[in-house]
Write a protein that binds this DNA or RNA. Structure first.
Lengths: 134, 134
DNA sequence: AGAGATTTGTACGTATGTATG
DNA sequence: TCATACATACGTACAAATCTC
């Protein structure tokens, strides 16, 4: 599965492989990835290299690591819809303080609506034209 | 500066220290951080540990690494304002493909407006009160 | 309560490669 | 050619948190 002679770094190859297994549904949301030890055995890679792959997927917001339970495919929870009539909307990664205060997982950006801030995995913004078509 | 006996992990202590130096303006946008070797000497930490700190700041979108020039405080470039009359706005980290196609740096999320996608460090959304005739 | 197994977290060391100036 | 600086990848050891017996 991993080609040590490839131009592509091994940790990226493994990240690609795991990402593909998630995207395909083989590893559905909530499911646990193989443990680091298992991945070592399956791939022949060093544990440090395995962990770098995991870091990549964490930064992408694809997985969450729960110590010492394992590494899990992120589940999408309830999304609150916030109505926005006017303002400026931007997004960025949260500061550590914002991460703490709003309890934001790794790899999850924040949505900024003027002065308001929302965790992007729990809030979607609804921009109306005139009246919502409900 | 780094307390090896602290409960807080050393790589997080260093990340905190560098983040503070950036926030204070001591390391302004565009400036180069000390090299890994310099940080090793200054902190007494192992290079691997130094690099973990750097990774933290990269994931936060605070810095960019240009191999082999150095590590630099991210500069905010021109921000295009995109007018949005209606739709649903969300944000998430980009996929690797999106990163390539849109040339998005590390630690930069994307803004999704229905089917449209924008790099969050180059685009801000302007939501109208009364929409123009689309 | 205790022991042991499992799994991730932290931190060190070492070697070599890649890219730029 | 040489020096600098980041990148990759291996290895080792121990710690922390949780679960099971």
């Amino acid at each position: 599965m991993i080609d040590p002679d490839s131009d592509r770094a091994r940790y990226l190859q493994l990240a690609d492989a795991l990402r593909a297994r998630i995207a395909s549904g083989e590893l559905p949301p909530g499911s646990r990835l193989p443990s680091e030890k298992t991945l070592e055995q399956e791939t022949g890679l060093n544990r440090s290299t395995i962990r770098r792959s995991i870091e990549v997927l964490r930064a992408e917001g694809l997985i969450v690591v729960r110590h010492p339970h394992g590494t899990f495919v992120r589940e999408q929870g309830e999304v609150e819809v916030v109505e926005v009539a006017s303002g400026t909307v931007t997004a960025r990664m949260p500061t550590p303080e914002e991460r703490r205060q709003l309890v934001i997982g790794e790899g999850v950006p924040v949505l900024l609506v003027d002065e308001r801030i929302y965790a992007a995995d729990r809030v979607a913004l609804r921009v109306h034209q005139q009246s919502p078509t409900n």
